Computed example of a mutant assay.
Amino acid sequence: MATSQIKSDTNWGEAVSVINGNFASLNQAVEKAKAQTSIKLPLFSSVSDLNSKYPPAYEGQMALVGTTLPATLYKVQSNVWTSTGTSVGNPSAVLSEVVAYDSLGQVDEVTV
């Protein structure tokens, strides 16, 4: 059967519930991905530190300069780190998915 054809012998009552279930699952996955999406940027204490340890690699590359968050956002423009003049970065940490030390138990071996 070609993908451009619609089966005429389908029980649409059953198909509708399956399709709606798939849409609901997909919507949940998309919303979860939206909530978990974040950009991780390196933080440097100075512009000279940024230039020496993280040379520009591509147009639009980003990094933070400062000693605390929020810090100044720098972007590569014409192969040079340039301040955007914007302070970004949330100084809070999400710990809901971090495993507590007490729950780790004894570790005898690490597999890499």
Rank of each mutant, 00 (worst) to 15 (best):
K7R: 13
E14A: 12
L26W: 15
V98P: 01
S52Q: 11
V16Y: 12
P56S: 03
E109T: 11
S87D: 06
E97C: 09
K34M: 03
A63G: 01
A24S: 13
N22L: 15
G21I: 02
L50W: 07
N20D: 12
T111R: 15
S25E: 09
P70R: 04
G66R: 04
N51S: 14
P91W: 07
V65W: 09
D102I: 08
L26G: 02
V110S: 06
V16R: 14
V99M: 15
V30G: 02
V98A: 13
A93Q: 07
V107Q: 11
F23V: 15
T67I: 04
W12R: 07
K32W: 08
N20E: 14
K40F: 14
L95D: 05
A57T: 04
D9T: 02
Q5D: 09
S96T: 03
G13A: 10
Q106K: 10
I6P: 01
S83W: 06
G13D: 08
T86Q: 11
S25T: 02
T67N: 12
A29F: 08
Q36W: 13
Q28K: 15
Y54T: 01
V65Q: 05
Q28M: 13
T84Y: 07
T68C: 03
M1W: 09
Q28I: 03
G66L: 07
S4G: 06
E109D: 09
S96F: 03
K32L: 10
A24Y: 11
S96G: 03
